[in-house]
Design a protein around this nucleic acid. Structure first.
Lengths: 166, 166
DNA sequence: CAACAAACGCAAGAATATTGCGCACACGCG
DNA sequence: CGCGTGTGCGCAATATTCTTGCGTTTGTTG
């Protein structure tokens, strides 16, 4: 079902919308070199087929008083599927946990957390995370600053990738 | 300059646009309970004051053939500001590196990378990253799956935060 | 209590989104 | 070769939305 391939124009559309998700369809059509109606139809198709999962405003956490970002490495006692899912579900219920990735290797999960300040983060850490069932150990790293944050896909490398597949 | 405070409506606007960045201004106005023109004016103000940094389509990497996500922990030889900046700049030039965060603690940087497959990631790893100047050690962790990925701000905790501040 | 500033809603004009339709090109089969 | 057939484009028309100007309300300050 997601097997429909993308042509050059589709990839341009994705790149443009990834860069500016609120771009007008007229402007988008102009940039990719076709008229507005087929452009909009392509966008709708890309959405339906799952290439575009949604659109989001990029809200600055600092402006809202979330001055602290932390990466948290979590090890569990048991790695059974039931326990893994249980931990993921618990993460889903914690607002301060913004991302939860299951990893291979020594660490089972890495979490990306935000908090208004260190105090409230540590309160969350000791009161919720480390005291949760099945959590064996937790290691945290404060984010000092971030030099790059481009969610999404590096369209720069798509051509060579597609070429290699052919 | 970014000192203007937000009222209840502003926070609702941010929450709505964070959830759906392509929402119509008419629909947005309806949801927050005001008419369209002042709603649009508020959005513009939020954009100008930096609360909203931009809008982005959420493009699924897997659909485009980027099946591999990896977290990379990097230690440098020298942590002088010049060297830190140099490494950040280098990350900016690597398309496969999507995020680059400077951390405290043992590890200097954590990178979030994507790649079409393991082979091309390892080629990047050995050919670019570990062979870059000043890189002391690199530790990687494959992402098995991710249970949560909500970039942005947890509006759930904003009320208590603001209350505490008052 | 009057003057003022900030923010709202209404209304009108401009721009955009959305749908229907006809046409051109490419492909496959008789 | 010639003829369906499917895919995708552009044009045109309508619906919806965006955007601006303006009068009014509300809350504040002197």
């Amino acid at each position: 079902m997601p097997g429909a391939k993308l042509d050059e124009i589709d990839r341009m559309i994705l790149a443009e919308l990834q860069a500016d998700g609120r771009m007008t369809n007229v402007e988008l059509a102009r940039r990719v070199g076709i008229s507005a109606p087929p452009c909009l139809r392509r966008v709708r198709t890309l959405e339906e087929q799952g290439y575009i999962r949604g659109y989001h405003a990029d809200v600055d956490p600092r402006e809202l008083g979330f001055d602290v970002s932390v990466f948290v490495m979590v090890r569990l006692v048991s790695q059974s599927e039931a326990e893994l899912s249980a931990f993921e579900a618990r993460c889903g219920g914690w607002p301060l946990v913004r991302e939860c990735h299951m990893l291979n290797g020594e660490v089972d999960f890495i979490l990306k957390c935000v908090a208004p300040d260190l105090r409230s983060f540590q309160s969350f850490l000791t009161g919720e995370l480390t005291s949760a069932p099945n959590v064996a150990s937790v290691k945290t790293s404060l984010v000092i600053r971030n030099a790059k944050a481009e969610p999404g896909v590096p369209f720069d490398v798509l051509e060579e990738r597609l070429a290699r597949k052919a």
